[in-house]
Design a binder for these strands. Structure first.
Length: 347
DNA sequence: TTAGGGTTACAG
DNA sequence: CTGTAACCCTAA
């Protein structure tokens, strides 16, 4: 009953090889998460990568470990390479790697879009579909075209993707994961995906660990303390470093907002998270205010820089900074679909 | 998560 | 029917 066999495209195979060159064979999960490859390999799981690599190794060398047992019974006619060598690929692959990077430098993808599925066992495509429907937030559900457009926008699916999508949508509807009404798909209420309970959105490791639990009680101090730390560090920075730090701050905001988005799915938490977003805007403002170099940074870039699709840093006149956070994710509670928080400050 | 054995779909 | 590639199962 499974989905039809999904043959590997040349692009996927090239991406896999490039990934192995970059991270090493066996680091399948790492390769999959690498933004450089995640677009092309969006429909593949780590196990898929592993299996495909095994196939490649077998056919390329005629000597894969899987083949060893069988080869004894079989032909001895192959005159080619003697020892097992995925390495032979590495030189070839290096070029392929570059090709891919140049062909489509996937915009260093926003982590916020990556929503971890409820379980790892779901196929990649299934997760993408759920992610699309969730993100699109269409009240009556999303039709196949919308879902396809979302996925194509975020990733780099193979040519036959549409067909696979149709098959998968059908299967998910049949299994009750999705509900189909008038050619539009919604996530079934019972699906654990829509109830952001145990899903763990993986933030960049280390210092952000505190972000991974955003409860209404600790979110505010958390955001501020983060920024305070940034502030302390920025005291001795050059203009460029300050600019980088500002960008970093936005990245952290993005991560925080991604977390908030998840929490916001529970109606009660939504308002608290909105406050958190505003708190962050204020804290970020403080950071910029206390740093002259940040002022230069803003001026150099014409006074208005889009740092994030939902966060704007503006320069009003020559002495006032404004931070604007557009909170879309509480659209379920607010009919207009979004709410904007703005704070301004003299610098 | 990964490695490796097993199973299934598909092409020739 | 046979071989191969994709997919599944599960121990570690």
């Amino acid at each position: 009953m499974g989905a039809p066999k999904q043959k590997w495209t040349a692009e996927e195979e090239a991406a896999l090889k490039a990934g192995v060159v970059k991270h090493g064979a066996g680091k399948w999960r790492t390769i999959l998460k690498d933004p450089e490859f995640s677009g092309v390999l969006c429909l593949r799981s780590n196990v898929d990568l592993k299996d495909k690599w095994r196939n490649i190794s077998v056919t390329a060398s005629g000597w894969g470990s899987r083949e060893k047992a069988r080869i004894a019974l079989k032909k001895s006619k192959q005159v080619s390479n003697h020892d097992h060598n995925p390495m032979a690929l590495s030189t070839i692959v290096k070029d392929v790697n570059d090709e891919i990077v140049n062909a489509k430098p996937l915009a260093v993808s926003s982590e916020s879009l990556r929503i971890a599925g409820p379980k790892g066992s779901n196929s990649r495509l299934e997760n993408l579909i759920l992610e699309a429907i969730t993100t699109l937030e269409e009240p009556t559900g999303s039709n196949k075209t919308s879902i396809a457009m979302y996925i194509e926008d975020q990733y780099w699916p193979p040519p036959d993707f549409k067909r696979l999508l149709s098959a998968k949508l059908k299967a998910l509807t049949a299994s009750g994961t999705l509900i189909k009404v008038k050619r539009k798909y919604r996530i079934a209420p019972s699906s654990s995906f829509s109830v952001g309970k145990s899903s763990n959105l993986s933030l960049r490791d280390g210092k952000h660990r505190e972000c991974s639990r955003l409860e209404k009680d600790d979110i505010k101090p958390l955001t501020k303390s983060q920024v305070d730390a940034e502030l302390a560090r920025m005291r001795n920075m050059t203009a460029q470093e300050a600019a980088a730090a500002a960008a970093q701050a936005v990245a952290e905001a993005e991560a925080a907002m991604a977390e908030a988005e998840k929490a916001a799915r529970e109606a009660e938490a939504a308002e608290a998270d909105a406050e958190a977003a505003q708190a962050f805007a204020e804290a970020a403002m403080l950071m910029l205010k206390n740093r002259n170099a940040a002022k230069m940074f803003l001026r150099d870039t014409l006074g208005r820089i889009l740092l994030h699709k939902d966060m704007y840093w503006s320069c009003i006149g020559t002495s006032t900074l404004s931070v604007q956070v557009n909170v879309k994710w509480i659209g379920q509670l607010f009919p207009q679909g979004s709410r904007t928080y703005t704070t301004s400050m003299m610098i």
